[in-house]
Nucleic acid binder design. Structure first.
Lengths: 353, 353
DNA sequence: TTGAAAGCGCTAACAT
DNA sequence: ATGTTAGCGCTTTCAA
């Protein structure tokens, strides 16, 4: 194994000069730097990351906590973040907690400066305050933080729920749909209690997109009907909800779902009940995951700017890591989006991407 | 920041004893170990991973190279591996190369012992030999290595292509399908050349499942028809292939596809052409990814044992990491599978999971 | 602009 | 079973 000391010797400089050259510091004379770099290349020198991390206190590794990698929304986010970090010479460790609050807290408790420089968190169960209690001053950034303002400890990158829902409702209205139902919150807008009840933050996440959809409907003068119980934003929850809706005697000509999984489940469930999409009921999703582009019907949805989320996240994270003491107010950045008009609202054969 | 030295002092032992206690070595007396652990907990001691890695030469981090995290097959594999490693107290860095051979080679060249203990590779373009040239003796394990025997340098975990294809063909035959086409290799079983041509390994991967399906068909006395060109195993390739097949005058009552994406594309494409699945043509996939369970029709497919793949991979990797000098013949382990009979062969409403 | 010296926190080898 | 000592390879500080 070739060490920096050996490279320095062969290049005829001191280890500290070689180090500076390797790191591209502009205090070394260009010809000296070139000599060091050439020597390093010739000897096939590899930086020892452990030693660098121990001495400098920087690992150049980041951690991301997400519920599940098989969920396409999180996979897209992780993919974008990993690629963007790689472009900065940094690497990402992804840890999943399967939507379990305790597991996430356990993961947070194990995070320390010697294993990564910062942590990106897409939490479905913990508030900024709870995360802060585990992490103290460790650099962190949240995706879709739904903490109440007094618990918002961290910068947050947010999916464009408000503008996206508005665009979807406008789209449905423009198609003449008037009896629009919103799928993806809890019954009666009331937080359920007891066994298996969601945590505050899970409730807030579900409530958020519901509220924005309702807002948009009111803006168009449409009556906001009851919200529907869904245990989570999954395909299966969508299928069950569709069966319930049909059993109750379907009173909608459109269903605006909080995410794509739910929407795909709704479509499948309606089809199982013999309800045609979009002839009888138009359906919209949110997130722009892949399956919506090839199911039949294809899914009208909002595609968030994932690369933009990743880039912004890394910018904000790096400013935290480099200026750890700048305690400013947490910022909330909302990224851009695109309305994908497809068959679940337009009809089969229409709206090819 | 609390160091091990401080913990040792407060516990009244030497640093090396404290170190051994923290690592759970059984050479320390139980009461001594307890004293150290209690002190560590009280002081909220966190192991410095960088220092440990520098001294011990082990990072407890592994790397995984895959083409794409948005591809559900790789997401499932990465998810299983990450979870299984976490259960061993180890972490996983996932790097994607977007199916680019050069990018993967670049990633391989950057892998060194100071950044991870081993690398798991699901390569679509590099042979064992090419990987070996980049990695030398660094611990590595491949998924679905298709290298010719003389280029098989590494242990490999394989999806059950042979048994799985046999089960699918048997299933189709039992349903009375006789004119079965295989989708997922190149035209005329000949390696294409020229612009955009696939690499050897990409060809071998495509050829593998085709061959096993053809084998199974011959075992059932069925004629093996031409294979179909697909540029890759993607949904879009499936859609295009379906349109081509219909244009040529569909001569099949079943299409056996090399993976789920291709099958989902085939189904979509056939539907676009007004061909009914499975009434006119039954379709099968391979991999068992999520969308196949909720598209209409749902997809009959083979679900590999992903957790088994991950567990076996980690076992084999750990034996490499712990006994680096044991140069044995590379092993090939084929994992188990499950045939999921669903609507794309049975008909709508049948075969609920 | 370059060099000399110190030491990050831990574990391994050896001594007791 | 525990302690002593040394040093992994790098970057940082300070001096020249």
């Amino acid at each position: 194994m070739v060490t920096l000391k050996e490279v320095a010797q062969k290049a005829g400089v001191s280890p500290s000069t070689a180090s500076a050259a390797i790191r591209g510091m502009d205090i070394v004379r260009p010809d000296t730097a070139k000599r060091v770099l050439d020597t390093a290349a010739k000897l096939n020198y590899q930086i020892n990351m452990s030693a660098r991390a121990l001495r400098s206190g920087r690992t150049n590794i980041y951690t991301m906590l997400i519920p599940d990698l098989e969920n396409q929304f999180y996979a897209k986010l992780a993919n974008a973040l990993s690629n963007e970090l790689a472009a900065h010479g940094k690497r990402l460790i992804v840890q999943t907690n399967n939507f379990k609050k305790d597991k996430e807290l356990e993961q947070l408790a194990q995070i320390s400066a010697s294993m990564c420089d910062g942590v990106f968190i897409a939490s479905t169960h913990n508030t900024g305050r709870e995360i802060h209690e585990a992490l103290k001053t460790f650099p962190a950034l949240l995706f879709d933080d739904m903490s109440p303002d007094e618990d918002a400890y961290y910068d947050s990158i947010e999916t464009p729920s408000q503008a996206g829902m508005h665009a979807l409702i406008r789209h449905l209205v423009s198609l003449g749909r008037k009896r629009i139902g919103i799928v993806g919150t809890f019954a009666d807008n009331v937080k359920p209690v007891g066994k298996g009840s969601p945590t505050e933050i899970a409730f807030a996440i579900r409530q958020n997109r519901y509220d924005f959809a309702a807002q948009a409907m009111q803006a168009y003068g449409l009556p906001v009907d009851d919200a529907f119980i869904v245990s989570d934003w999954s395909v299966n929850a969508g299928i069950e909800t569709a069966h319930q809706l049909v059993k109750q005697g379907l009173r909608f000509d459109a269903l605006c779902c909080a995410n794509d999984d739910l929407a795909l489940g709704i479509i499948r469930g309606l089809l199982e009940c013999g309800v045609r999409v979009p002839e009888d009921v138009a359906v919209t999703g949110f997130d722009g995951i892949a399956p919506g582009s090839f199911t039949t019907p294809t899914l009208t949805t909002i595609s968030s700017d994932y690369q933009g989320m990743a880039q912004t996240a890394i910018d904000m994270m790096e400013s935290q890591v480099e200026q750890p003491d700048e305690h400013t107010m947490p910022r909330r950045i909302i990224v851009g989006f695109q309305l994908l008009q497809r068959e679940s609202t337009l009809g089969f054969g229409a709206g090819k991407d």
